[in-house]
Simulated assay, not measured.
Amino acid sequence: MDLDAYVLAHAQEWQRLEQLLHRGKLSGAESDELVGLYQQVATQLSVVRTSAPDPSLVAHLSSLLAKARNKAVGTRVSSWRGFQAFFTERFPAALYRLRRWWLGCLAGNVVVTGVLLLWLIDHPNVEQSLLSQQEIDQLVNNDIEGYYSEYAASHFALQVWINNSWVSALCIAFGILGLPVIYLLYGNIENLAVLASLMTHADRGQLFWGLILPHGLLELTCVFVAGGVGLRLFWSWIEPGELTRTQSIAREGRTAGTVALGLACLLAVSGVIEAFVTPSGLPTWARVGIGVTAELAFFAYVFVLGRQAHHRGVTGDVDARYLEDRVATQA
Rank of each mutant, 00 (worst) to 15 (best):
H10Y: 14
H10T: 12
Q12H: 11
Q12G: 01
R16A: 02
L20E: 06
K25D: 06
A29M: 08
E33Y: 12
V35G: 06
G36L: 06
Y38E: 11
Q39S: 01
Q40N: 02
A42V: 09
Q44T: 08
L45Y: 07
V48S: 09
D54R: 15
L61I: 12
L64G: 08
A68G: 08
W80T: 06
G82V: 06
F86D: 11
E89Y: 14
A94V: 05
A94H: 06
L95M: 10
L98Q: 04
W101E: 01
A107R: 08
V111H: 12
L116W: 11
N125W: 15
V126Y: 14
S129P: 00
L130Q: 10
E145K: 08
A152I: 00
N164K: 08
S165H: 05
S168T: 12
I172C: 09
F174C: 11
L179G: 00
N191Q: 09
A193F: 04
V194T: 06
L195K: 00
A196M: 01
L198A: 05
L198S: 05
R204N: 03
Q206C: 07
L207V: 02
G210A: 09
L217M: 10
L218S: 02
G227R: 04
W235G: 00
W235V: 02
I238V: 14
P240E: 07
G241S: 10
G241H: 13
E242D: 14
L243T: 04
R251G: 00
G262M: 03
A264T: 12
C265N: 06
S270T: 09
G271K: 04
F276Y: 15
G281W: 00
L282D: 03
T284S: 13
G291W: 00
V292I: 13
A297Y: 00
F298C: 04
V302G: 04
F303A: 01
V304F: 15
R307P: 01
A309W: 12
H311D: 07
H311W: 03
G316D: 10
E324V: 13
E324R: 12
D325I: 09
D325A: 12
D325H: 10
D325M: 07
V327R: 11
V327S: 05
T329Q: 11
Q330C: 03
A331E: 11
